[in-house]
């Protein structure tokens, strides 16, 4: 286990890059792994798979709805298809197909959204996915994964391939800070307690896990003991870990690179309302962002460690 003060932000591979590499590994192990992409193989990194297994990569052109349908057909005929595009496109243009062809009949399709959140940067809001957690969680039967770094992503992709049923995996464009050592173990639906703590719990997912760790380090130097939970599985949500956090630390801050009113935060709040109500502060987006570098955007839209530290102070003030 880490101590917060020891965490140093070192960049590893982007989670989309880790997805592309994991897919090739899987492709070598299992001939039933096939891939669909919609003219973004060089961005989603399915290009690695395409190079090694050209017959098993189906280029669908810029037609996400058809790609999801073809993926469903491949799955119904016994293949293990991964379809991939920017989250902003596959989850919106493919949503209705995901609903009727995949979620409702519980079809074994894996959907990987890349370029999630605002950290895609310069391309701007039309390419930024800030609603995908809400959309994925509105599809019953889907397992929803949001890995924080390359190691967690490799696990998520491999887990998805072995699971019979639909899975959505959220990945990002920029290089992601390294959170885990290569031998880290994960369990589906179990939050990872990265840092123990007794005063407050910071609940984070994806790229925000690193910011949560930085915040915990800052708080530690001020004498505040912050627990950090990485929610790599958004559904099924680890309600037990959240309840424990509420009981043991009495206050929580949820941080996500997503619309705050329909993402991880509301799911955490629902779990706590059911199990053990506690004050919670929410850090996320309130609307659409704009063009800029990923770092500039995370600063401007308040998705940084100092924002988390402020929220911790607020929530500690509300603690009974």
């Amino acid at each position: 286990m880490l101590t917060a003060a020891k965490f140093e932000k070192k960049l590893g591979a982007a989670t989309r890059e880790a997805f592309g590499r994991a897919l090739v590994e899987l492709g070598r192990e299992n001939p039933n792994i096939v891939v669909g992409d919609a003219d973004l193989t060089k961005s989603t990194m399915t290009t690695y798979f395409a190079k090694e297994f050209p017959d098993r990569l189906f280029e669908c052109g810029i037609a996400e709805a058809n790609m999801v349908g073809i993926g469903a057909g491949l799955a119904l005929a016994g293949k293990i298809p991964f379809v991939s595009s920017f989250s902003a496109f596959v989850m919106t243009k493919g949503f209705e197909q995901l609903r009727v062809l995949v979620a409702y009949p519980n079809v074994n399709l894996k959907v990987v959204g890349t370029h999630s959140g605002i950290s895609i940067g310069e391309d701007g809001p039309s390419q930024m996915s800030v609603e995908e957690i809400a959309l994925a969680c509105a599809l019953p039967n889907f397992v929803v994964l949001s890995p924080a770094d390359e190691v967690a992503t490799r696990w998520a992709v491999r887990w998805a391939a072995g699971h019979v049923g639909p899975v959505f995996i959220r990945t990002g464009r920029p290089k992601a800070p390294i959170i885990y050592s290569a031998d880290a173990r994960f369990e589906i639906g179990k939050a990872v307690e990265l840092v123990p703590g007794t005063d407050v719990t910071i609940v984070a997912t994806g790229l925000m896990v690193a910011e949560a760790l930085l915040a915990a380090g800052q708080l530690e130097s001020e004498g505040i003991s912050a627990r950090v939970l990485d929610i790599h599985t958004i559904r099924p949500l680890d309600e037990e870990a959240l309840e424990r956090a509420a009981r043991e630390t009495g206050a929580l801050v949820v941080v996500e690179e997503h619309l705050a009113d329909c993402g991880l935060g509301v799911r955490v709040a629902q779990a706590l309302a059911k199990r053990h109500p506690a004050p919670v502060e929410f850090i996320g987006l309130t609307g659409y962002a704009e063009s800029g570098s990923p770092d500039e955007l995370l600063d401007k839209y308040g998705l940084r460690a100092p924002n988390i530290v402020e929220a911790v102070r607020r929530v500690l003030g509300r603690k009974r």
């Binding site: 096939v34 189906f58 709805a65 058809n66 790609m67 999801v68 349908g69 073809i70 993926g71 469903a72 057909g73 491949l74 799955a75 119904l76 005929a77 016994g78 293949k79 298809p81 209705e96 197909q97 609903r99 009727v100 062809l101 409702y104 009949p105």
Partner: peptide, 18 residues
């Protein structure tokens, strides 16, 4: 499972590819 129009041809093509 069908019922939302416009989707079945994609599914059939996926099966044919398999």
């Amino acid at each position: 499972s069908t019922g939302s129009l416009g989707e079945g041809l994609s599914v059939g093509i996926g099966m044919a590819l398999a």
